[in-house]
Design a protein around this nucleic acid. Structure first.
Length: 580
DNA sequence: GCCGTTTTCGGCCCGACTGTTTTCAGTCG
């Protein structure tokens, strides 16, 4: 085997193959080759393992969607740091053209048209050509199309990235309420990536059931914050809001709601698989209905009926990514994924002792009101000065207050004293072992030095995991959505150490973290690592972020048995006391 | 370019909407 010239992350490789797909598409290559590159890119993003490890094992072609040709390209990249195929492609198709594909309503055919007819090679040149009125005279173009592209370019500069789940969800609830109240609306549901609970969403997809689509459509279009109506038909409309969010509403008759909801929920790849399955059964599946070979329709009012018709159990939306869920469902091996009701404890919360907004008593009451049986107060340790970290003396004083609140609240909820202890930049923990030993639960976390080199930051994490008093690693990668990537951890090494020591890794439920993410959570489960889903609550409101963490776990195929705070009280307390 | 209860070649999903067109191509999800 040749040596490594350059290390690539899964995402870097995925981005390169996406780029190849974009360039090939503009070039006019056959669609299935393009789809193959996109499939490989998606597969790499969702692999859950470091592709470098897979390469080292010589098992690249075992990655779904990676065959001989793409494996050779990955190998060439790693061993030489370059890819001849891509270099040649970029000499044939100006690389700046891929940016054009970001413009709404502008796809590869038009990008090629502007390039070949007008010599446009990047976004700036396209904008200039549009302003000069040069687009409208091209074949298939007109004044409206030109204006649309210009507006799209401007929208692009306004737009940031995808919208975090935590921002899109409450706004969608507001829209849902509005549409539900419209006349004749029998049902309305969130669909798309938001229903699948992806960490970020491109837009908000909504689906309503009504015999007459008019009132539901009108309800959306008349929302006071709508700044632009992007399309508007009988069955579908899409709009943009002041906050730059976009929403899309489909309205279908109630008797067709099942197929429509299934269709609108996606993912696209999941739907493609379902349609393939339908064809094998002599049925054609669309958002409207199943079509039999004799031309008659089979309608589904409920989504369950769509799956039933295909011989499948209903598949939870969070699993619908074509990441093996259909094969698992066919084999009767779909996991019973965890639900919010399974969570009986919150093991990572803060009080006014550090940077929380509520006292221990208030936190305990808020947790109890939400049905939790156990609450761990885990304030920050001293070196996290910005968060008012506690000194050793303060930690000891805090115990008395926790005991007092415990005796006041009796058996209604069990309080644990813990700490979110800082993993210092040299890898040492913030408190001496005897202090950690006195606590009921110890969470270790990185908050600083996240940009350290891979080996250094990984070593810090490993030394924390190896400390016998550490029970949980909070938000392991330290990513912040949408702005900060996680630390450059050798996550496989972290997983190995956690599996060996039985240390639980957290899925932090806050929508700005969701860390571990779905992909890593799934890998952790495969390795038998205990997980924990916590809110990291700093206020009462934060407790309500739990569903985001649970959804992330569901996306990672996590079952209740994999999550220590979904265990029974005795089992969890037993686990903690055995760890010491 | 990938893949295999259709198996080493020949397949690889479906419809709405828009703007351009007089019947369709491009884009999107």
């Amino acid at each position: 085997m040749s040596d490594i010239t350059r290390r690539y992350s899964n995402q870097q490789l995925a981005d390169l193959f996406t780029r190849i797909a974009d360039l090939l598409e503009i070039k006019g290559e056959v669609v299935y080759k393009i789809l193959a590159y996109r499939k490989a890119a998606d597969s790499l993003t969702n692999l859950g393992r470091d592709v470098m490890d897979v390469w080292r094992e010589g098992k690249l072609t075992e990655i779904p969607g990676v065959g001989k040709a793409i494996a050779e390209k990955i190998d060439e990249l790693i061993t030489t740091g370059k890819l001849g195929f891509l270099q040649k492609l970029e000499s044939e198709v100006p690389p700046g053209l891929v940016d054009l594909l970001q413009v709404p309503d502008l796809g590869p055919k038009k990008a090629a048209l502007f390039w070949k007819q007008l010599g446009v090679t990047n976004l700036a040149e396209l904008e200039a050509a549009a302003r000069a009125g040069k687009l409208r005279d091209l074949p298939g173009m007109g004044e409206k199309s030109e204006a649309r592209i210009l507006a799209g370019i401007e929208a692009l500069s306004r737009r940031t990235t995808r919208t975090p789940l935590g921002k899109a969800w409450p706004f969608a609830q507001e829209l849902l309420k509005l549409i539900r109240e419209a006349q004749g609306v029998q049902a309305v549901e969130i669909a798309g990536s938001l229903r699948r609970m992806r960490a970020t969403v491109g837009d908000i997809d909504l689906l309503a059931a009504a015999a007459d689509s008019g009132p539901a459509m009108q309800a959306l279009l008349s929302h006071p914050q709508v700044t632009r109506v992007m399309s508007q038909g009988v069955a579908k409309a899409s709009v943009e809001f002041e906050n730059n969010l976009r929403a899309q509403l489909w309205v279908h008759p109630p008797e067709r709601f099942g197929t429509a909801l299934q269709y609108a929920t996606g993912s696209k790849d999941h739907n493609v698989r379902l349609r393939e399955l339908a064809l094998k059964r002599g049925l054609s599946l669309s958002d409207q209905a199943f079509l039999r070979e004799d031309g008659s329709e089979l309608l589904c009012a409920k989504e369950e009926e769509v799956y039933q018709t295909l011989g499948l159990p209903w598949i939870p939306p969070e699993l619908r990514e074509d990441h093996g869920e259909i094969q698992a469902a066919l084999a009767g091996e779909l996991p019973q994924v965890i639900s919010v009701e399974d969570i009986l404890a919150d093991l990572h919360t803060h009080s006014t002792w550090s940077d929380g907004k509520l006292s221990i008593r208030e936190m305990a009451k808020a947790a109890r009101a939400r049905g939790l049986k156990i609450l761990a107060i885990t304030d920050h340790s001293a070196s996290l000065g910005v968060a008012g970290g506690l000194s050793v003396d303060e930690i000891q004083a805090q115990r008395a207050e926790i005991d007092a609140v415990q005796s006041e609240l009796g058996d209604s909820i069990r309080l644990l004293q813990g700490c979110e202890v800082e993993i210092r930049s040299d890898g040492a923990l913030d408190f001496p072992d005897e202090v950690l030993a006195s606590l009921d639960i110890v969470i270790a976390a990185l908050h600083s030095g996240l940009r350290q080199p891979r080996q250094q930051v990984t070593e810090r994490m490993l030394s924390a995991i190896r400390n016998p008093h550490v029970d949980i690693i909070a938000h392991p990668t330290g990513r912040m959505i949408p702005n900060r990537e996680g630390a450059d951890l050798d996550i496989e090494a972290v997983f190995r150490a956690a599996a060996e020591r039985g240390v639980a890794l957290e899925i932090n439920a806050h929508p700005s973290r969701l860390d571990l993410d779905d992909v890593l959570a799934r890998r952790a489960v495969q390795l038998g690592i205990p997980l924990t889903i916590n809110t990291d609550a700093h206020s009462e409101y934060d407790f309500d972020m739990l569903p985001f963490g649970v959804a992330t776990a569901r996306r990672g195929w996590v079952r209740a048995a994999d999550v220590i705070n979904a265990w029974g009280t005795d089992q969890l307390l037993g686990w903690l006391s055995r760890r010491g």
